[in-house]
Computed example of a mutant assay.
Amino acid sequence: MTRSQHYRSRSLPFSYRENGIQFDPISYTIDGDDHTEFDLNPARTEIDLTNALPTDDDTAVAEWETLTITADLHISEEVISAVFPSGERDQPPAKLYVTIRCHETIYRDRVLVTDAPTMPGTYEISIPVKKDQVRGTVELRPYLARTRDRDGTGEYASQQNFRVASGTIYNILIDRPEDEEPPSIDGEQVSFSQTPHLPGGEKLYYLDFRNEKRPKLWINADHPRITEVLQSQGSVGAEARMRDVILDQIGYGVWQQLVVRAAAAVDDDGNPEHEWQQTVLETFARNMYDVDDLNEAIYRLRTDIESPASLPHMIQRLDEELQEYLDPREQLIKLMEEGLQI
C-alpha cells in the first residue's frame, strides 16, 4: 500500500481510517547490539531477517534472545478530525499501540506507544520480539483506539477500546521451515510510476535482469488492491484463492523468461553462467524433451533457442511444461467454487 493521504474507510457504523497511521520501521537490534537500519521501499511490507539473525553453524539453532524493531508512527491532524467529534479533538481520548502476532505459535501481544490523550504527531517506538515466543513470521500493525465511552452514536465511535484507525501490516520473517530454501529470485513491491528504472503504464510486474547474476521480480504497488491480495496470509477463503490465481499468472510469465534466458546463456560446453540458470534448466529441461539426461536436454533446448525453425516448437513445449508445473486449472477451479458460495 502506498503512503498517501487518501485513506480508505472500512464498512463500519462509525468513521474509521484503515491507513490513518503511517508506520515506518527504521532499524533493528539483536540482543542490544548496534542498530542496523532497514532499507525499505515505500511499498515493501515483508522484511526478511532470516540471514541477519545469528545461528549456530553446526546445529543451525538460533542464537539470539530478543529482536528489537525501532519504528516511527505518524498521525495527522486530518485523521484525528476524521475519527473524533469536535469536542474531543483538542485532547483525543485515544491510545496508540502496535500489535505483535505470530500465527504459527498463536502468540499475541501489543506495545503501548501513547496513552490518552494521543495528539497528532510522530512517535518513536521500540518493539521487542522474543525468540522463545515466535516462529516463522511475526506480524506488526499499529492501531489507534478510544480510551473512554462517550454519549451518543452517529458518525463517531462511542465505546471504549473501539479501534478508530490502523496502519500498514509489516511481516517480519525470522526463520524458515527446515525444508524450505530461501527464494532464488528476490521479489519486492514498489510503485512503478515513481521508480525511473521500471516500465511505465499499467504493468503488473517486471522481471529485472540488470544484475544478471541475481534477477529481481518487481510487483507494481500502483495497483493496491492486487498487492493487498498478494499479501494475504490465509489458506482458505476468496482472497487466498485470488492470491494463488494471481501468483500463477505472474509465475507463468516469470518462469517463461527465466527458461529462455537460461537456455540462451548456455556455453559450448553446455554450462550456464550463473547458479540460478542451472537451477532453472534442471527444473524444466528434461521434462520439456522427455529425456533423462540433463546434458542432452540442455543441448536440445539451446539448439531450439538458436533456430528460427525450431523456436516455435520450443515455445509450445515450454507452454505445456509450465501448465503442468503450475497447474493453474486447480487454482481456477478453487476460485470458481469459492465464488459460487458467495
Rank of each mutant, 00 (worst) to 15 (best):
residue 265 A to V: 02
residue 335 L to E: 06
residue 336 M to L: 15
residue 44 R to I: 03
residue 183 P to K: 12
residue 248 D to K: 04
residue 158 S to G: 10
residue 324 E to P: 00
residue 113 V to M: 02
residue 303 T to Q: 14
residue 243 R to M: 02
residue 11 S to T: 12
residue 108 R to S: 14
residue 123 Y to S: 06
residue 124 E to K: 04
residue 262 A to L: 05
residue 243 R to C: 01
residue 262 A to M: 08
residue 103 H to I: 06
residue 129 V to Q: 05
residue 255 W to V: 02
residue 30 I to G: 03
residue 188 E to F: 05
residue 19 N to R: 03
residue 10 R to K: 13
residue 197 H to E: 10
residue 342 I to K: 14
residue 139 E to G: 03
residue 15 S to M: 08
residue 184 S to I: 12
residue 3 R to K: 13
residue 50 T to P: 07
residue 285 A to Q: 06
residue 69 I to T: 03
residue 33 D to N: 14
residue 279 T to S: 13
residue 175 D to N: 15
residue 109 D to W: 05
residue 163 R to I: 13
residue 240 A to H: 07
residue 253 G to Q: 12
residue 244 D to I: 01
residue 211 N to C: 05
residue 320 E to H: 10
residue 156 Y to K: 02
residue 313 H to N: 12
residue 254 V to F: 03
residue 7 Y to D: 13
residue 197 H to T: 10
residue 114 T to W: 02
residue 178 E to L: 13
residue 37 E to F: 15
residue 46 E to D: 12
residue 313 H to G: 13
residue 295 N to S: 15
residue 114 T to D: 02
residue 97 Y to M: 00
residue 72 D to K: 10
residue 116 A to V: 00
residue 182 P to M: 09
residue 135 R to Q: 06
residue 142 P to E: 07
residue 75 I to C: 03
residue 222 D to N: 05
residue 126 S to W: 00
residue 41 N to W: 09
residue 287 N to M: 08
residue 283 T to A: 10
residue 337 E to L: 14
residue 207 L to T: 02
residue 39 D to P: 02
residue 190 V to A: 08
residue 127 I to F: 00
residue 70 T to Y: 09
residue 150 R to Y: 03
residue 224 P to C: 02
residue 338 E to C: 09
residue 43 A to G: 13
residue 39 D to M: 04
residue 82 A to N: 06
residue 306 E to Y: 09
residue 176 R to P: 08
residue 12 L to D: 10
residue 77 E to L: 00
residue 180 E to M: 14
residue 333 I to L: 12
residue 36 T to Y: 04
residue 270 G to N: 09
residue 54 P to E: 00
residue 266 V to L: 07
residue 146 R to A: 01
residue 218 W to N: 02
residue 113 V to F: 05
residue 166 S to Y: 05
residue 85 P to R: 01
residue 45 T to F: 12
residue 37 E to S: 14
residue 309 A to G: 03
residue 133 Q to A: 09
residue 196 P to N: 08
residue 243 R to I: 00
residue 12 L to S: 11
residue 336 M to Q: 15
residue 301 L to F: 06
residue 14 F to C: 08
residue 309 A to Y: 14
residue 86 S to K: 10
residue 252 Y to N: 10
residue 319 D to H: 15
residue 30 I to P: 01
residue 77 E to T: 09
residue 168 T to V: 11
residue 108 R to V: 08
residue 207 L to P: 01
